[in-house]
């Protein structure tokens, strides 16, 4: 079934990692070619109990992310369908050349899973807080970059990538994410999901910022401003049609992402609009900064990627309409 948006967004009750582990376990039970690798983060990605039961398919790669990506690439050449997980900082910038050469250039069917994106790394702080991972992966030709928004989408994307050819970077929050979609929803990679329809401004968000954008849309509605909200869960290939159509319908665009605005969602949307339908726009996201430790709420405000920031940016952009 296609996706259905919940009438009310509710805080997630289930951690993303629990769904990650359970979905992979179910996939492995039906297809012995699926393998989940983890770089000494099984207790973090939820697969430790699965590893104890089935160490053949839940592979302990040790603290050696570069080798893990190479091993996953090699495994794929024998027909294995590998999902290789580490924290997003290590699954992207630490293994960039391996992802570029052994996965991208060599056209190996590897799914790289990077968890704790952006501020969701909270207490692990600046060293572990990737604001650049999706942008790096976007620069690898042929790499699909997807950020599942909630547990429903995560499960669907994991199952879809089992049979799809190509390389994938799956940017995954590890803890609870706000519930956006009804259970059983399915999603088309490369297409945006429209969560709300409005005529005045378009909010295009991804990951953590999707729920914030929905809250922002509610704030704007109280001021008589009706916002369209798009969940742009696939950063690459990006849904050019949806971006242009929304820009055409509303004449103003704001992007919101838990990532550096450079080469992230904001850049990707700006590229499409500049080429196809120049439109006043603003970008909410990390303004080319490093991360730091803190609670999620503190970091949201510290880096200015919350609902209030999105609503304020919309009001700014509307002045330029």
């Amino acid at each position: 079934m296609p996706y259905t948006v919940r009438t009310q967004l509710t805080p997630g009750e289930t951690e993303m990692r629990k769904v990650y582990a359970a979905t992979l376990a179910d996939m492995i039970s039906k297809n012995s070619k699926v393998v989940a690798l983890s770089a000494d983060l099984m207790s973090s990605d939820g697969t430790q109990a699965n590893h104890k039961k089935d160490p053949v398919h839940f592979v302990q790669a040790g603290i050696q992310e570069a080798n893990m990506i190479g091993v996953a690439a090699g495994m794929s050449l024998t027909g294995i369908i590998p999902y290789a997980h580490s924290f997003a900082c290590f699954a992207s910038r630490r293994v960039y050349d391996q992802a570029f050469i052994s996965v991208g250039f060599a056209q190996c069917n590897v799914r790289i899973v990077g968890s704790d994106p952006g501020i969701t790394a909270t207490y692990n702080g600046g060293t572990h807080m990737p604001f650049e991972d999706a942008g790096l992966m976007r620069l690898i030709p042929g790499m699909t970059v997807v950020e599942p928004t909630d547990v429903v989408m995560l499960e669907d994307i994991l199952r879809q990538t089992e049979t799809l050819q190509g390389s994938f970077y799956i940017r995954m929050a590890r803890k609870e994410a706000v519930n956006i979609y009804e259970p059983g929803s399915t999603f088309e990679l490369g297409k945006a999901a429209k969560l709300r329809d409005g005529k005045d401004v378009t909010l295009i968000a991804s990951g953590y910022c999707v729920a914030e954008a929905m809250t922002a849309a509610g704030m704007l509605a109280k001021q008589g401003i009706e916002a369209t909200v798009l969940d742009m869960y696939t950063l690459k290939p990006i849904d050019r049609e949806a971006i242009v159509a929304a820009a055409r319908a509303t004449g103003a665009v704001v992007t919101a992402e838990n990532h550096n605005i450079l080469n992230g969602l904001g850049s990707a949307v700006a590229e499409v609009l500049a080429e196809e339908y120049p439109t006043p726009m603003g970008r909410v996201g990390i303004q080319d900064q490093y991360g730091e430790v803190g609670t999620l709420d503190y970091l949201r405000d510290r880096f200015g990627i919350g609902a209030q920031n999105i609503a304020d940016k919309a009001l700014d952009v509307l002045k330029r309409k």
Binding site: S32, K33, V35, V56, H57, V59, A66, N67, I69, G70, V71, A72, A73, G74, M75, S76, L77, T78, G79, I80, D97, Q98, I101, S102, A106
Partner: peptide
Amino acid sequence: LGQGFSAAVGIAHGLKVQ
């Protein structure tokens, strides 16, 4: 350099899994 070695290890592991 270094990457082919990991891939060979991965091929060997992928075959062993199967």
